[in-house]
Simulated assay, not measured.
Amino acid sequence: MVKYIKDRKPDIDDWMPFTGLEDGGSLPSGNIYVPLEEWLAARDTLLTRNGGLGVRISNTDNLEVLKEDINRFDLIVLEFPKMADGRAFTQARLLREQYGFEGEIRATGDVLRDQLFYMQRCGINAFEIRDDQDLSASLKAFDEMTVTYQPASDEEFPIWRRES
Score class of each variant (00 low, 15 high):
D23P: 00
R162W: 05
R56F: 11
M119W: 01
N31S: 14
D131A: 13
F127D: 07
G103I: 08
F80Q: 10
L27C: 05
R56A: 15
S138I: 06
M1I: 14
V2N: 00
M16Y: 03
Q98N: 08
T48G: 02
T19H: 02
F142A: 02
K67G: 06
E156K: 04
A126Y: 09
Q133Y: 06
V34I: 08
Q133I: 14
A126G: 07
L53E: 11
I159T: 03
N71W: 01
F89G: 03
L36G: 11
Y118G: 01
L66Q: 12
F142N: 01
L21I: 11
N71A: 13
G103F: 05
E144Q: 12
L46M: 10
P151L: 00
R113S: 04
R96M: 05
F117P: 04
G86M: 06
M119H: 00
R8I: 04
P151V: 01
K82S: 12
M16P: 02
E104D: 10
E22A: 13
F101Q: 03
A88W: 05
M145W: 07
P10W: 00
N59Y: 12
I124E: 02
Y33W: 15
G25L: 12
E37R: 09
Y33H: 14
R93E: 11
V111G: 04
I12Q: 12
T146I: 08
M1G: 11
D13W: 00
L139I: 09
M1H: 12
G24W: 13
I124Q: 01
Q150R: 01
N125R: 02
N59C: 12
K6V: 13
L53P: 10
V34N: 02
K6H: 13
E163P: 00
Q91H: 15
N59K: 01
Q150V: 00
R43G: 10
F80S: 09
T148K: 00
W160R: 00
G54F: 10
F157N: 10
L116A: 03
